[in-house]
Amino acid sequence: MTYILIIIGAIFVNNIVLSKFLGICPFLGVSKKISTAVGMTGAVTFVMTIATIVTWLLQKYVLLKFDIEYLQTITFILVIAALVQMVEIVLKKVSPPLYQALGIFLPLITTNCAVLGVAILAATSKDFGLMESTVFAIANAIGFGLALIIFSGIREQLEFSDVPEYMKGAPLALIVAGILALAFMGFAALA
């Protein structure tokens, strides 16, 4: 039951992009085509899940144990940066097709605040164990992917619409994102 609540909460009610404002840069940057949106979602899911597990363990068994929680930010960001590098190297060796698909998105992920944000949220939550944190990370990645893929679908259509010059690009994308966020607010009653 708690897992279902975590999943619904993370995907719909408190969608990471549309309600928590995390990961806006890739949301606006790589959402012009559905295919790139899918690739980005795959890469984020991968890194977010591993990063959350590793940082949760670090928080529990190192930072809290030695009472050095103030080093949280610096440790987490280094872990994520190192992890992205490692994932890149491993993917290149193990699965070249997957690397071809995700490779160009991986460097972008280090500065994706969604990954660090979810890691911090999971590690500082009082009632998340390792299992809950993992579910939370996967659900958030799905929420990110859902928002990104819906949004890129809309943007592909927008290409053909005739709008004033100064509304093209970011302004129109942001307003569409706002309407999408409005739609997602309807899910609030699910909680």
């Binding site: 549309l18 309600s19 404002f21 010059e165 100064y166 509304m167 970011a170 302004p171 129109l172 994308a173 942001l174 307003i175 994102a177 706002g178 309407i179 966020a181 409005l182 607010m185």
Partner: peptide, 19 residues
């Protein structure tokens, strides 16, 4: 003040800056 307004307000401000 809620999430959707943030996107919409920023969208219009950027449009005005562009204009």
């Amino acid at each position: 003040i809620l999430a959707p307004g943030a996107f919409i307000a920023l969208g219009f401000i950027i449009a005005i800056v562009n204009k």
